[in-house]
Amino acid sequence: MSRHALSVRSLTVEFATARGQARAVDEVSFDLVPGERLGLVGESGSGKTTTALSLLRLIRPPGRIVGGEIRIAGADVLAASPEELRRMRAARIALVPQGAMSALNPVLTCGAQFEDLFAAHGERGGAARIAALLASVGLEPQVAGFFPHQLSGGMKQRVCIALAVALRPSVIVADEPTSALDVIVQRQVLRTLVKAQKEAGAAIVMVGHDMGLMAQFAHRIGVMYAGRLVEIAPVRDIFADPRHPYTRALIESLPDLERRGEFRGLSGLPPSLLDLPPGCAFAPRCPRVVERCRVERPGPTLLAGGREARCHFAAEPVHAG
């Protein structure tokens, strides 16, 4: 197990609501080897961000991790004391946040935000170390003296990436790292993120809803639906041969150069987390649903090549239609 940079077992997160417990993440399991890039996709509310933030135990009330196990290079995250957890964060598992525009403290210079990271982990900072980190994400050393409002969105996100790799963590969690940026900057920032991740030798969990963008940067893709990880497979396999009907629907909704102007959407809405169908959560929208899907919840089906899908028919390819 310790050869894994990250190992997640049956992670379950619930949110207390007025109408009961909403299970936002439902028994999610996956492993990452060092240097591996996993893209976690799904529509909003599918639990991908909650999964990502759980890895750093950053879920705030009314949310709560109710079960499962998270290990980073063997170290148990959920069993850590508050002080152990504090030391793990950034040093073993780092976050590249979602809101690039407001993720940096507006009243501190970028340099000061590196220095307090180093100070919190008992390390020496210094202008040279900060300059080297900034250079690794393509920024000039002067940026250390700038306040966040003096930087563009892309530059701010680069600063966040430099902060994330500063202590050479084993795992980087990037929660929709490019959602606040325009398309051109998105690609540059992702390229920077991947370069920094490779240099740090870290594994990365990238959360996003743009499957096309993910496909270019991830090794494997995990697809989430209603809090469940419905399929996880290497990028090439998942595009060539999706085994879950939801994955297929997602892929078909992507624009294509040859297939101009024709998109196949997915009718219906994801179910309420407070009122999930007893069987497969996707059953109400699934084109190939049978009676069994409505009553029996599909467990994980292990497939060749380390793939996994939660569908009763995962063993056979999903055909169009």
Binding site: Q98, G99, A103
Partner: peptide, 25 residues
Amino acid sequence: EDYMMLAEAKGLTERRIFLAYGVRN
């Protein structure tokens, strides 16, 4: 604010987050 979550993710001490990130802003 997003910067409060990032401060926590950076593993800063709670005292530092309270004073330099929370109270300061």
